[in-house]
Write a protein that binds this DNA or RNA. Sequence first.
DNA 1: CACGGGCTCTGACAAAAGTCAAATAGTCTT
DNA 2: AAGACTATTTGACTTTTGTCAGAGCCCGTG
Lengths: 323, 323
Amino acid sequence: MPIRPTDQVLHKAAWLYYTHGMRQDEVAKHLNISRASVAMYLRRARETGIVNIATSTQLFADDVLARQLEDAIGLKSVWIVPEDRHALDPTAEMPVVAAAVFLELIGKGGRVGVAWGRTVYHIADVMPFADLQGVTVVQLCGNLGAPYSYRPDQCTTEIARRLNAEGINFYAPLVLSSERLAHELRQEPVIQEQLATIPDCTLALYSVGGIEADSHLVKCGALTAEEMKALGEAGAAGVIAGQVIDREGQLMDCTHNRRCISADLDSIRSIPKRMMVVQEDEKLEPLVAAIKGGFASHLIITASMARRLLDRLSGTMAPGSGT
Amino acid sequence: MPIRPTDQVLHKAAWLYYTHGMRQDEVAKHLNISRASVAMYLRRARETGIVNIATSTQLFADDVLARQLEDAIGLKSVWIVPEDRHALDPTAEMPVVAAAVFLELIGKGGRVGVAWGRTVYHIADVMPFADLQGVTVVQLCGNLGAPYSYRPDQCTTEIARRLNAEGINFYAPLVLSSERLAHELRQEPVIQEQLATIPDCTLALYSVGGIEADSHLVKCGALTAEEMKALGEAGAAGVIAGQVIDREGQLMDCTHNRRCISADLDSIRSIPKRMMVVQEDEKLEPLVAAIKGGFASHLIITASMARRLLDRLSGTMAPGSGT
DNA sequence: CACGGGCTCTGACAAAAGTCAAATAGTCTT
DNA sequence: AAGACTATTTGACTTTTGTCAGAGCCCGTG
């Protein structure tokens, strides 16, 4: 694409204002335009990510609980979204924190795998605009026409759009009606190639799904409430990228999983930074399973969840090296 | 260090204002402080790098010349600082561009090697403040008590300070009076260990020195004007991290180099991102040598230098694949 | 326990930035 | 080549932000 002159002005205005600290009227004089235009350009520069204003997420990582959790379960980093009285609504805040952390974790030229779910969609929705050329956003799981329109491809596309990154969608359904068909589809070169690129990701973004009757997979029609109930009785504990895992975080041996087209769990585990974001208080058990399964290296949760998680894990895992 | 409550307020104010887009009076209400305090906190948040405002350096990379150079000599990226009439002073602008590019190129947890010279010092001087925890800044060459006070350790320290990164200084002189002593000092565990970490750097920042009578090495007393002249006649073309290189960018076989304590040229070459910044118009020949020697993967130069470089190189190197 | 010294905080004012309706330029269509 | 439509630009206005001198507060010290 050739260089559009409009973009040049946008860049110049942003550079002079933000990097040089000129006032808007100085920029206007410099570029021979009106100050109002400068203000407009600057807004667009912010909106398109030419200018990136990032606030350190340190605030959320600087929490005693966060440190304890890091020590207790050996995670790289934990961010705690506070729930105290005059804090903001933690449920609304979490995606914002997650988006900021996400931006901090992507490096130039990185490859990011994005899964699907309500949480991920909300994160996409508040993702700031940035100019991350060279970044690729790939979809971690197949598609599912959801009634709530949180389609997997939408999550990927939206994030890629906001980051000025390349988005690679996955043109396969998440669940097929037969194991045979799923197997055959996975053999297709297009699909196979895409699945093969997933271990190259440097960062993964997902949540863990629950296995209740009102869980996402059930609501979207991938499983009936009965099937889900049966899976629960058979030892299921959560859902990762559309696939059901047991209490130890291992892939369940079940029809549903065999009918799924999604990133292989081992591929996901091999991604260096695995960002797990959990909003719902009910997801303690799924989260424990996901952590045991090695699906989280970076965790973003509420303070109450952090406390419960710490209680829950301090018994079953090594007590860690912290004081 | 424990968490200081003041910092918490700083972080909170910055978060609410910049990430949530609250107005200052809303932030003030939220935190139960006066609006003026909020304004003050926000300034401090910007100054300390809690908030990072970065402008894309795309503007300087989006240049036809830059593309041509990238094609012609196979560099990863070239940034051109324009010199047209109503642009800013290119000499003053270059360090600013370099600092912005530098910030774009460092990844979280990266290790950065910083060499020494007037240019590097100026870059340090305009480096924005940022909160890059986990980054380490290492000194690439030994120290030299310069009359102009651009000491190598100052460059490293200043950059580390501004980035909230760890700075590792190199406690050895750049040049010793005898080859024997230099050799012995290089064997010292402390020195050896530090030199050994240089290939682990992900990013290097330096310029190339000239070999004139008024070059930096001469001014700082590392070499006399006569010695430098002799080196020039023997085929010297430039200086990299205190060491003299020939026209092909290879280490000169000379006493001075053997008396130097500095990063091994091969170590430098093995750093993935090698950011070379050249301000002075007279440094065409040193730059050509540095490029031939593989010391630049990312180049920041003026438009006129770019043109001359392109002319100079199109004859001696493969014409490249560009149109 | 009174006394600095160094902070932070406050209220009011000045400066800068955001916004909007109307005018203008540019572009594509017929 | 005129017309219709969209996107940009502008000047005037409002809102928001930066700043500063003085008040208040905390903490260690004599």
